[in-house]
């Protein structure tokens, strides 16, 4: 991959919360139209990296370039306007708003009435269940439906690229499969994706390229099919993160 076809690049991003440094220099690249997985266990810095990309935290040093513009330190709403949107986890839908209100909220940067209606139709095509439930408060949806709602909400701003924050979190395997299928469809229709996941196997099946983050730096990277099959050591390492997740769920 050359820098020319990269839509998102980060170089040596260092950052954290308050005085606690979490990211110790993260460098990664996502090409236009590509699905990239960012993997790692709990507390390795993947969510922090996501926040740096979407603007919720300001990197202390390093640079992030999206579609030819420096976005490190930019306010999150301006980053959304540039076409980079973070899809929240399902639990972060607004429970006291209806499904349709949540979706329309995603289209905040779109002002045209017709364009907003088109966005709704698009979201409903990917997730027909949301259309059935559109007058319901989103607090009444199941976990899987909430995740669909959040992905649909992300689509509403007509982004060039989406950041997915653990779309499989706390969902049953069958539901995860459903959601990943739709994510794949969305990408086939031209979306670029960076996905943070703990469900390593699923993420690597979907993605073309993978990064593993550990202690706030990129620990290893490579094409997804290579990562998933090649190295026994890597697999056991990746397996470890899955065990972490299962242990967390058992709690």
């Amino acid at each position: 991959m050359t820098t020319a076809d990269a839509i998102l690049t980060s170089a040596d991003v260092v950052g954290g919360y308050g005085t606690v440094q979490i990211l110790n220099g993260v460098t990664l690249k996502v090409a236009r139209g590509q699905i990239v997985a960012l993997l790692g266990g709990n507390g390795t810095g993947k969510s922090t990296m996501l926040k740096a990309l979407s603007g919720l935290i300001k990197p202390w040093s390093g640079s992030i370039v999206f579609d030819g513009e420096r976005i490190d330190g930019m306010r999150p709403d301006r980053i959304v306007r540039l076409g980079l949107v973070q899809v929240t986890q399902g639990k972060e839908a607004y429970p006291a708003m209806t499904v349709e209100e949540n979706l329309l909220l995603g289209a905040h940067v779109i002002t045209g009435r017709a364009a907003r209606a088109r966005g709704l139709e698009r979201a409903y095509t990917y997730f027909p269940i949301l259309k059935e439930r559109r007058r319901q408060l989103s607090g009444t949806l199941s976990g899987g439906q909430l995740q669909m709602l959040c992905i649909g909400r992300g689509l509403m701003s007509e982004p060039k690229m989406m950041l997915l924050d653990e779309p499989s979190a706390a969902l049953a395997p069958q539901v995860v499969l459903d959601i990943f299928r739709t994510i794949f469809r969305i990408c086939r229709d031209g979306m670029t994706l960076l996905m943070v996941e703990q469900n390593v196997r699923m993420a690597l099946l979907l993605a073309e390229y993978g990064y593993v983050i550990k202690d706030g730096v990129i620990h290893l990277e490579g094409p997804a099919e290579k990562m998933i099959s090649d190295d026994a050591v890597r697999l056991s390492y990746l397996g470890g993160t899955v065990a972490d997740r299962d242990a967390k769920m058992a709690l």
């Binding site: 979407s54 306007r81 929240t88 607004y94 708003m97 995603g106 909400r153």
Partner: peptide, 24 residues
């Protein structure tokens, strides 16, 4: 209204409101 929806979003959760592209 679009702005009214944004007001409710900011009241609910500012961080998520930011991610919706709302000028908080």
């Amino acid at each position: 209204t679009r702005l009214g929806l944004a007001v409710r979003a900011v009241a609910g959760n500012k961080e998520i409101a930011y991610l919706m592209g709302i000028n908080v």
